[in-house]
Design a binder for these strands. Structure first.
Lengths: 198, 198, 198, 198
DNA sequence: CATGAATGAGACTTCATTCAT
DNA sequence: TATGAATGAAGTCTCATTCAT
């Protein structure tokens, strides 16, 4: 009789927290809501996490580390800078497809709320920006990208667009169509690389 | 000797709220902090506003209406789509130069905190997106912009970049140099219009 | 051009207070509600009355003194004890007919709210009880009323019935019919004097 | 060693509330006073009750249901209408003897304050009136009571007298003598049934 | 007399966190 | 591990009252 693995409840709580944060927002929800959603005793939340904020931190770090890995991998495996950017955009879009609630929490509650929480994670967030900027810088060195644009600035443009697109999806009343998700990957890179001009 | 205009205190409270929201964040600050900052009795805040949230709403709406006007004006006065986009970017950057704290509040506490507050203002925020999209659409009709990019998507890219740049400034430890502010205006439009590609 | 008599506003405020107290209850209403209802500046209420409670006190005392006079008069003018009781009941019922809101305030907010306010007016309220008891006592001395019942107890029965009837009217959803008002006068005295027994 | 039953604290709070409401009045007391009286943490009051008002509601309903039962029982067990009325009067007087503070709260804060709270309980209160009226009606049908008096009116007289007597006791400075309590039971019924007339 | 802005103490309620079992 | 009762600090909002004009 396989007893529930001890740390499994921890996962249950984290997953419940995603749903609750996505639905009610971090500030607005109560720890009790998370416990209820997880069908777990109130106190157990505090057995595994020292505070409500730590739950959010955990969710963010889990996901952001995957993101940093994905960026590294994209950088390592793809040949052209544009392919690298595509791989990154694709990873983020796929993350959204797989778990839109988690992405909503990451973007709305952490990345965008950088004032209060992100402050802690600012360094971590910047790692991503820096890696992207580095990709652009090397693209410029290779002569693929124009020199006029500061790589850091280019990274802002690239990540800013992705974040804006996801935010639009997040606050859209209706479900995003599968094809739109796929199209977005190409569109993001195309827009960033080629610009609006004819 | 002109007596203090009755509604002047209302303004004092609003201005104090900007500083407090910028410094401590909307959720973290207390109404008492605003009253203290305004050097005004606690209750007076509630004489002019029905809640802490209404103060934030007021600040947002005041500013966003100016923004919508600026976009309209840019659309009306400038000839080319690119000049129109430049005028918009310039307006936002100048807004930041003039009152960075207010812009921080608008972006961090309202625009990006889309979950809780932005929700209420989503329609208002979308008006701006729509106007920008319309500029792009007409640019495409004129043959200045490529047809491949959905105007709404282009608007996300444009506004997303600006917001990302301002966010970077906002969380920068150090003061942004005057020249950087000016350079940004051109850079934003150049990046969006011409893209990264050489 | 007859200028408004100076003290007229005082009356306007008192009358407005009756309506507001009747509608919202003393504890639940705010001084601002009274000023609004009276169409008078906030501060003017405090020009004429030192506190919200003083307004209620004034209303009660004005009315209760009329009541005490009415009882004295009934005692003086009527011959039989039963006629005296009838005159008293009639006076109270007529008071209700004339200004049900005022009676509601007197009963609900003062007489029955004996804990907080009635306390102050307990002595005044008891004067009425005592006068009624005295009428009963003399009725007993004359041999009209039975000796078995303590006059004070009889007064409780008499006044208790009246108050209960008015309270029923007060909380009745619909308007009380004119005939019911008149019938009540007789019924009250009949019930008290003759009892339920056949 | 029996551990403290979980809901026991709830009872402690209710009992403390009776004392505090009786002493200070519902409007005048603070939730903190109840917590202090119960020797319980502030927040625990809100663990068991959603508001101060709910505490009062609970106290009222607990007691009034007993009252309704007592009336039903009196109706079922006693033979003559007068015995039924006696049983009801006796029950209420005994309730007062047993817990005068609770009765004070029920009468002063709920029954009499029907404006604000009783409104909710008006229906419940009327059930009692109706049951009493029904007893009178059947008394009339049996030929024991006179037909001239509307049963509902008779119920007002009966309950009004009881309430008035209790109110007198409640605001009496001194403790009510045991014999007075007992005598009251008979006196109430005698007064109501036989009236004042010789 | 009249106005209504200004004051600030006070009360309710919430909820993160602790703790005894 | 697991439970949920218990704690109490903190914050929002209300509103009677004052006061300058």
């Amino acid at each position: 009789m396989a007893a529930t693995a001890p740390a499994e409840k921890r996962r249950v709580i984290l997953d419940a927290a995603v749903r609750v944060f996505a639905r009610q927002g971090f500030h607005t929800c109560r720890v009790a809501d998370i416990a209820d959603e997880a069908q777990v005793a109130y106190g157990l939340v505090y057995h595994y996490f020292s505070s409500k904020e730590e739950i959010l931190d955990t969710l963010f770090l889990e996901r952001w580390d995957l993101m940093l890995e994905a960026i590294s991998e994209a950088d390592a495996q793809q040949r052209s800078p544009r392919e690298k950017l595509y791989a990154i955009a694709a990873f983020i879009v796929e993350s959204y497809r797989h778990d839109p609630e988690l992405m909503k929490v990451i973007i709305v509650e952490v990345t965008r709320a950088a004032n209060t929480f992100g402050r802690t994670h600012l360094a971590k967030i910047r790692e991503a920006y820096d890696q992207i900027a580095e990709i652009v810088r090397r693209g410029q060195a290779e002569g693929v990208f124009r020199d006029e644009i500061d790589p850091a600035f280019a990274a802002l443009a690239f990540y800013g667009l992705i974040e804006q697109v996801l935010t639009a999806w997040i606050f859209d009343a209706e479900l995003v169509a599968e094809e739109e998700l796929d199209r977005a990957k190409t569109l993001i890179v195309d827009t960033i690389c080629r610009g609006l001009d004819r």
